[in-house]
């Protein structure tokens, strides 16, 4: 198992640990770890392929997504004073078990994908990517609080990023930066709206946002 694969799987495991807690601070901590590993995958891919652009992308991810975004969300949760997420129909321990099953499913799916020649860390990378994507989706579905929705979205985004990194040879830099910027802006805007939700509704439980209905 190569280093990129090892880091990718570690990132997926961090996501599984993340979904295993109902406390927002712990969720956020594991999101940060997961993103640190994603940046480690980037750097080690750069080491293997000799593409030095990947170092700077890895560094950008570490600074912007792992540190910057985590700190921003931590600041929001502190300001709003919400510490935990009770979860929806799916209880927290069960969702962790489901995400372990997802890792296995992801491995089966990844082995079905055609392999890129000269990319030896493709299978582990695809497994981790699909697992992160599924775990992030489950996290969004299984949690109530608006902050959790953002963390789930960011986890999905990490999965997509890892997929791009391990299944293709070098996305164009322009596109990569555009995507990073877009994600950053989504998080900023969503964060500001959360303040507004808190002020107008006096809670941030998105399952209770049901005033706009058909009937």
């Amino acid at each position: 198992m190569s280093y990129p694969e090892l880091f990718a799987i570690a990132s997926a495991v961090m996501a599984i640990l993340m979904i295993g807690s109902g406390r927002l601070r712990i969720n956020l901590l594991f999101y940060a770890f997961q993103t640190v590993f994603a940046s480690a995958v980037t750097a080690s891919c750069g080491l293997v392929s000799g593409d030095h652009q990947l170092y700077s992308i890895g560094l950008a991810i570490l600074l912007v997504k792992a540190i910057g975004v985590s700190a921003f969300i931590a600041w929001i949760t502190k300001r709003i004073g919400v510490t935990s997420d009770p979860g929806t129909l799916i209880p927290v321990p069960l969702s962790m078990h489901a995400s372990i099953v997802f890792l296995v499913v992801a491995h089966l799916l990844a082995s079905q994908l055609p392999h890129l020649k000269g990319q030896d860390h493709s299978l582990g990378g695809a497994t981790a990517a699909i697992s992160l994507l599924l775990t992030g989706t489950l996290f969004m579905l299984a949690r109530k609080v608006a902050v959790s929705q953002i963390i789930g979205f960011l986890t999905m985004e990490n999965g997509i990023y890892l997929f791009a990194l391990t299944q293709t040879r070098g996305m164009p830099m322009m596109v990569e930066l555009g995507i990073l910027l877009d994600v950053l802006v989504v998080v900023m805007i969503a964060g500001l709206i959360i303040f507004r939700i808190k002020r107008s509704f006096e809670h941030i439980d998105v399952t209770l946002l049901t005033e706009l209905k058909e009937y």
Partner: peptide, 12 residues
């Protein structure tokens, strides 16, 4: 309230 709810759903 309505605008905030609509914006949140739209964005997410």
């Amino acid at each position: 309230k309505h605008a905030i709810e609509a914006t949140w759903k739209y964005l997410i």
